[in-house]
Simulated scan of single mutants.
Amino acid sequence: MADIYKALADETRRVLLDELLNRDDQTLFEICGRLAMNYGMSMSRQAVSQHLDVLEHAGLVHTERSGRYKLHSIDTAPLAQIAARWPTRRAQQ
């Protein structure tokens, strides 16, 4: 679970997750373009790829090959583990 917290600690990775939540199955090229257009973030492909690797290692992003393309998609299941670990207390009446 520590990997999830490390992955979420960085603002850039949270933006990447937001972008993948808006549209799944994106290539690295598409992600870089959308980050530049939607968020004004101009990062190298290598930097974005490294952030995606951290997210993938944490289980928050899954990849699959489609021909010569590598498609990235979000997996929110690990986030449910966080919510299950610390359930909210109900207000006392």
Rank of each mutant, 00 (worst) to 15 (best):
L16Y: 06
L35Q: 09
K6P: 00
W86A: 04
R85Y: 03
S49L: 12
T27L: 13
S73I: 01
T27P: 08
L20D: 11
A77T: 02
M37W: 04
D18G: 06
S66R: 14
S66M: 06
A47S: 14
R13G: 01
D18C: 07
I82K: 04
E11I: 01
D24E: 14
L21S: 10
Q46R: 15
H51D: 08
Q46A: 11
Y39H: 15
L71A: 07
G59R: 04
L55M: 06
A7W: 00
G67M: 12
V48L: 11
A91Y: 00
Q81Y: 04
Y69V: 07
T63H: 13
Q46M: 10
C32R: 15
E64R: 14
Q50I: 06
G40E: 10
S49P: 04
A84L: 11
P87V: 03
Q50D: 10
L60G: 03
Q46Y: 10
L55P: 02
D25N: 15
G33K: 14
R45V: 12
Y39S: 11
G67C: 11
A58P: 06
A84H: 02
H62W: 02
V48C: 10
D25G: 08
S44Q: 11
T63L: 13
D18I: 05
R23W: 03
L52R: 07
V61L: 14
R34T: 11
